[in-house]
């Protein structure tokens, strides 16, 4: 069952990707990106990563679509055809892609429990979550307790991104300085 679901979702995903590449109308591209994120969220649910799916659905197909549409309001709605030759970029992308695929050959088989990443601190987290904190959701205890320092950094990164965008887009109008 899961195999068929995965196959169907991944096929849809590759079809949408091809459609995104071929689409020249930017409005269409944005909607296709939204569809892509939604399929990705469904795929995350099949992989039992519901929290990632929630984020992907809300940010990927919700907020970023609205922000991209807001950007589209400012620019032309049609993507220009490339003026320079695309041979070199295509080669770079193809070679990088092949290298990445080659790199995955050394990774442990998908989903095996004795992969190195599951043997370092993970057993400690899994065993100590309930005795130490009484919280059955280990993701929450890892994010909020075992690694709360990382989460503080992550939250700061989100804030920094927001501050950066606010400074880039807003400062000119509010300060009354040079208006573009």
């Amino acid at each position: 069952m899961e195999l068929y679901l995965n196959a169907a979702l991944l096929t849809l995903l590759s079809l949408v990707t091809i459609a995104i590449i071929r689409e020249r109308n930017l409005f269409g591209s944005i909607i296709l990106f939204s569809v892509y994120s939604f399929i990705m969220a469904s795929l995350m649910i099949v992989l039992d990563a519901v929290d990632v799916a929630l984020t992907e659905a809300a940010v990927g197909s919700g907020i970023s679509t609205v922000v991209l549409l807001g950007t589209l309001h400012l620019i032309k709605a049609k993507e220009e055809l490339p003026t320079k030759s695309t041979v070199l970029p295509l080669t770079v992308v193809a070679v990088t892609g092949l290298l990445l695929v080659w790199g995955t050959c050394d990774l442990p088989v998908f989903g095996v429990s004795d992969a190195p990443i599951h043997k370092h601190v993970t057993p400690y987290y899994l065993e100590q979550s309930i005795p130490l904190m009484g919280i059955p959701n280990v993701v929450t205890t890892v994010l909020g307790n075992f690694r709360s320092f990382d989460t503080l950094g992550e939250t700061t990164v989100v804030l920094t991104a927001g501050v950066g965008i606010m400074l880039l887009l807003r400062s000119r109008n509010t300060k009354g300085g040079d208006q573009i």
Partner: peptide, 14 residues
């Protein structure tokens, strides 16, 4: 609030 602020910033520009 960061997400809403980003949205407001884009809308303001539009």
């Amino acid at each position: 609030c960061t997400m809403i602020a980003i949205f407001y910033a884009f809308v303001d520009r539009s």
